[in-house]
Design a protein around this nucleic acid. Sequence first.
RNA 1: GGAGCUGUCGUCUAGUGGUUUAGGACACGUGCCUGUCACGCACGAGGUCGCGGGUUCGAAUCCCGUCAGCUCCGCCA
Length: 615
Amino acid sequence: MNDKYEYIKNIDFTRFKTGLRTVLCGELRNDSVGTDIKVCGWVNRRRDHGKLIFIDLRDFSGIIQVVTDSNINEAVYNIAKDIRTEYIVAVEGKVSARTPETINRDLPTGEIEIKADKISVLSQSKTPPFMLDSRDRVDEMARLKYRYIDLRTAEMQSNIRLRHEVTTLTRNYLNENGFIEVETPILAKSTPEGARDFLVPSRLNPGNFYALPQSPQLFKQILMFSGFDRIYQIARCFRDEDLRADRQPEFTQIDLEMSFVGMDDVISLIEGLLQKLFKKALDLNLNTPFQRLSWKKSMEKFGSDKPDLRFGLEIHDITEIFSRSQFNIFINVINKGHCIKCLKIEDAGDFTRKDMDNFVDMAKKYGAGGLIWIKVENNNQFNSPVAKFLLPDEKEKLKDIFSLKENDLLLIVADDFYKACYSLGAIRSYLGKKLNLIDEEGFIFAWVVDFPLFEWDEQEKHFSPVHHPFTSPSADTLEFLEKDTLKVNSLAYDIVLNGAEIGGGSIRINDIEVQRRIFKILGFDDKRIEENFGFFLRSLEHGAPPHGGIALGMDRLIMLMAGLESIREVIAFPKTQSAYCMMTESPSPVTELQLQEVFIKLSGIKNIHDKKVKS
RNA sequence: GGAGCUGUCGUCUAGUGGUUUAGGACACGUGCCUGUCACGCACGAGGUCGCGGGUUCGAAUCCCGUCAGCUCCGCCA
């Protein structure tokens, strides 16, 4: 049976009994035959057979067929005649068994129907802009504009209810583990670095602004200093950056913080949570502990800090082979202490010259200087734009190491470690999909650990934190903080699922001197430290326990659990790529008076009212 | 900030310089129909081809610009 409403689980139907209805549409089975019921719902479809009209009545629980017969009750029949799709009606009648030949096996309620004694229209509806059962073929713009209709579909009901299940299970699990839920301000303080803040002007403090929190990070830590031991929050976070399929300007994190813990404590707690979520919501068993790999190894083998481990196709280092190379590109790279990385694709005979150009473009797009391809032809000849620059023994070594045979393809990037790995990692992901190497049903988790604490920001010419500035350096690399900054590792951990980062956390700094040193390395002077983090440093010097935490990107997690490709599908009212809400038409201009009250004067904007005038 | 793709009745689409008066399907309206369940049948209404400009005897079609949506790079402590 094809039951679109299988998201209705463990529901106590009696709770939904109201003055207007005694049962839900999806509730009844043939054991109710003969009873009189009242039911309310939307008209999913009406089928008019002349003297006989069928109405498929829908609510969140399912669909039931209502029948009116002009020979039996003409008044009801006449009402049914004027009813249209998406009208909301109340039906009173008797549950009756369908004759064997009229049973609908596609419907859980297909063995019965309701003979209507009374139908009243509770609300009329204009013809809907699109049909609910063709939703997946409807342009997303229309779905977002008429979100209230899109949300009626079984798919969206299922997604939003899955979301509710995840939050409920999470709260229960964390409560059982001694956490309490604490709210923190939405009108918060703007802090430097990180993402762009959303600003909120203060009427009572002219010229001053709140920022919407990018995460409740500092509040979580301060609650540890306050002795709550374990807190969590299903936290809304705001970041004013460009959107993606998996990024919205406001999104939700399962955000938690714990006292007197090390990395393993947080990791095993989260493994337990995910195990419970997947078991209860999807009936899937996850094996724990999840595998762990270091950031370095993840970059080296998969070219990503969020590797998709559902398939192999690992990256290899072939720098050694070319140590005496005559090829300029390789010589230059090796002289700079950089490396040569390689991806081997077997049976690549179908790839054309155009595909090769495409690989080169992809490598460039992801930051590499270029890409070299070598295709193995029959009798083991190398077909490659650089074949003539390769020494015979280099060719032999490549054949040897990769056991090359006809139609094998090597994609080679020579660049610094990060660019070489990153660009080949992007190609690896592309090929994983293109060559169908991925088991779409599988969920492969991993922890990525041993991140560097800092990276060098080439544009801004300063160090910036890989995680955030409150992440603790590892004890064994702490000594390099000032003298070999990039060598310092952090006690940060990311959790990765099927090539997506679904969360990250760290053991935090609880030593004010270390915290001050970190701010210094990040290039903050004393004045700026005091202005932005003074409150936090003062809180650190009044007794701060060792503590750590993590935040899971809940929208992404639910998206992956539901097998979807955009978090917009699991958010009730998402925004478009230009951060615009199609339904409410927000953001929008405000009145001059509103601006005056918050002491704001607009400048440098052209055509403020011209935009968004459409459809 | 950048790249790519897309935009034709309410919806999904056909149409790549000339019988196109822009075609079809679904939805919608009217009528017929007593067992359908994506009901069926007949008839009907519905489109300034996203917007602006250009090329051309002629533009939905080609060119430029612009707006919107999507995907991606940058960005996202």
